[in-house]
Every structure is written in structure tokens, then in C-alpha cells.
């Protein structure tokens, strides 16, 4: 099983040294022009492969009945998604209405106070196409076909109409990489819609979501919707993250936690929206926020 012709060890050492050098340059932030150049060449190939993949998927469903059923399923899924979004909107409006009534009552009893109105999100989304995913099972990133030339910057939130996807961690001229909220290094300040209890949504190594650091006294139950709280300024508030599927509560612990079913299907991401502008949540307007704990994972990707 072996062959006599061997590559000279010196070349192998050179390759290892080059790889280490690239790693050091990347960590030092000096590799951007080279990555831009390489991505410029690679992007048409990635787009082409994506087209082939989609074509292959279409070919596999050649039987007419299956196609018809698939179409119906798609329509029903779309309706379910729309209804879900409507439900979230209605509940948010109800909550907002209650909050505004409380604020009005508060203002009427305190006429000398100057109270600010509710923050309105100013979204200026750009539709970006997902052209690939991280090749390793160790990390959860997506590659987008828009970059700094289109106004995308590191830290911008990435969403779909179904909910929060992640945030931009690296940009090139016409590409960007986004860390998914399901990655083990991701942490998002969140709020339970029904009770307004706050917590932190973290991903794990398997890509599951958990809301942690919810105080024991707060009511949280399966079916509750989890939204971004907007605290910390990294994300706008009220973006849907997912729905509680199971709650873990132990009397001896200070906090409770719950498993979340993400509202976004991360395996089927095709198009996403990058929020280039939004008004950060004003925490002074939040109704009795419970204190948030520091996230377990504090590391920040270097890109």
C-alpha cells in the first residue's frame, strides 16, 4: 500500500510553516486582502455548486404526486409560519398596549415627568444569499454573498422572517461570515414573551439552544416564545428566537433553564436579512427587567 517516491520532507516542513504563518497573520488581522482575492475567485464556483445542488434536489422529486404533495406541504408550512408570525405580532401588540396603558397611567399620575415613547426599530435590511456553511462540525458559521462593499459590518444581526439567525463576525469586499446562534460560542440576551423574564440563550456543541440564567421565581413553561431582549445593544429587541420545549428547574439552583426549539431551520437557510441599522433597546423603558447573568462562554471569534 505504499509507494517509493516520497515528497521531500523539507517541502512538508515548508507547508506546515506556511500554514502556521497564515494562522498568525490571520490572528494579527493582516490576511484580509488575500482572503478577499481568494473569495473573489471562489464565489462563482460556490454559487455554481449551489445551483447544481438545488438542481439535483429538484431532479430527485420527479414523481408528479410527490411534487404536488411537496408543493402543498410548502404552502402549509408557509401558512403555519405566517400564522406563527401573526401570533407573535398580536401578542406583542397586546403586551405593548398593556405597557403603554401602564405608562399613560404612570404619566397621568406623574405629570411633571418627561417620558420617552417606545423605541421603534429602524430596519434597513439587505437580502443576502447563503452560499456555504462551515466545513467542520466543530463550528456553525454561514457564508453570505454580500460584504463590506454592500455596507455589511462586523456585529450586524442576521435574521430571516422566521427569526434570529446570528451575527456577522467577518467581512470581505463581497462576502461575510455569520456566526449562528446555535454555535457553542454564541450568547444572546433574551426575554420570555409571556412573563418578560430575562435570560441568556446559548448554543451548544450539537447546535441546540438553551435559555439559561432565568431566575427561579419566574414562570416559564413549554410553548413559551423566546424573543431577543435587546439588552446589550447587539440585537434589536423582539426578534423571535424560538419556543420552549422543556424546562429544567432544580430547587437548589439559583437559576432555571429551558430547551428551545429554534424558529429558524438552520439546515435550510437560503436567504437571510442583515440588519444594517436598528435602534438599540433602551433598557430604561423595559418593564421591571430581571438581572442578566454573564454568559458561560465569553470567547469572541477573532474574525
Amino acid at each position: 500500500m505504499y509507494a517509493p517516491n516520497r515528497t521531500r520532507p523539507v517541502w512538508l516542513i515548508v507547508l506546515v510553516v506556511v500554514a502556521i504563518l497564515l494562522l498568525i497573520l490571520h490572528v494579527a488581522g493582516q490576511l484580509q486582502p488575500l482572503e478577499d482575492l481568494a473569495f473573489g475567485w471562489a464565489q462563482p464556483l460556490l454559487r455554481g455548486a449551489l445551483g447544481i445542488g438545488e438542481g439535483a434536489q429538484a431532479v430527485t422529486g420527479t414523481v408528479a404526486d410527490i411534487n404536488a404533495l411537496r408543493e402543498q406541504l410548502k404552502q402549509l408550512q408557509s401558512q403555519v409560519t405566517e400564522l406563527g408570525i401573526t401570533r407573535v405580532r398580536v401578542r406583542e401588540l397586546e403586551n405593548e398596549n398593556t405597557l403603554l396603558r401602564q405608562q399613560l397611567a404612570y404619566k397621568q399620575t406623574n405629570p411633571d415627568f418627561d417620558i420617552l415613547g417606545a423605541a421603534v426599530l429602524q430596519r434597513n435590511p439587505d437580502l443576502a444569499r447563503v452560499i456555504g456553511q462551515d466545513p467542520s462540525n466543530l463550528a456553525r458559521y454561514i457564508i453570505l454573498d454580500q460584504g463590506s462593499a454592500e455596507g455589511i459590518k462586523t456585529g450586524m444581526p442576521v435574521v430571516t422572517p422566521q427569526g434570529l439567525v446570528g451575527r456577522i463576525t467577518a467581512t470581505g469586499a463581497h462576502w461575510a461570515k455569520a456566526l449562528l446562534i446555535t454555535d457553542a460560542t454564541s450568547a444572546v440576551n433574551a426575554v420570555v414573551q409571556s412573563t418578560r423574564a430575562t435570560g441568556i440563550v446559548q448554543g451548544d456543541v450539537n447546535g441546540n439552544l438553551t435559555i439559561k440564567y432565568v431566575p427561579q421565581g419566574e414562570a416559564i413553561k413549554p410553548g413559551d416564545l423566546i424573543l431577543t431582549s435587546g439588552m446589550g445593544g447587539g440585537f434589536p429587541k423582539r426578534l423571535v428566537i424560538g419556543q420552549v420545549t422543556a424546562v429544567r428547574k432544580h430547587d437548589i439552583e439559583l437559576f432555571q433553564e429551558a430547551d428551545i426549539q429554534a424558529s429558524v431551520d438552520f439546515a435550510r437557510l437560503e436567504f437571510v436579512l442583515v440588519l444594517k441599522k436598528f435602534t438599540p433597546a433602551d433598557i430604561t423603558q423595559e418593564p421591571t427587567p430581571t438581572p442578566t447573568a454573564a454568559p458561560r462562554v465569553t470567547r469572541t471569534p477573532t474574525k
Partner: peptide, 20 residues
């Protein structure tokens, strides 16, 4: 490894180093 590094969110050069 270089091709994979281009698409990875992990620091550039990691896949090249590991696979070499």
C-alpha cells in the same frame, strides 16, 4: 485545507495546518 479555511469561521490556516 486552504480551500476549507476560506469558508470557515475559524481562524485562517487551521484546516491547512491540521490536514497537512
Amino acid at each position: 485545507g486552504i480551500f476549507l479555511d476560506l469558508a470557515s469561521g475559524l481562524p485562517f490556516g487551521m484546516h491547512a495546518l491540521a490536514l497537512t
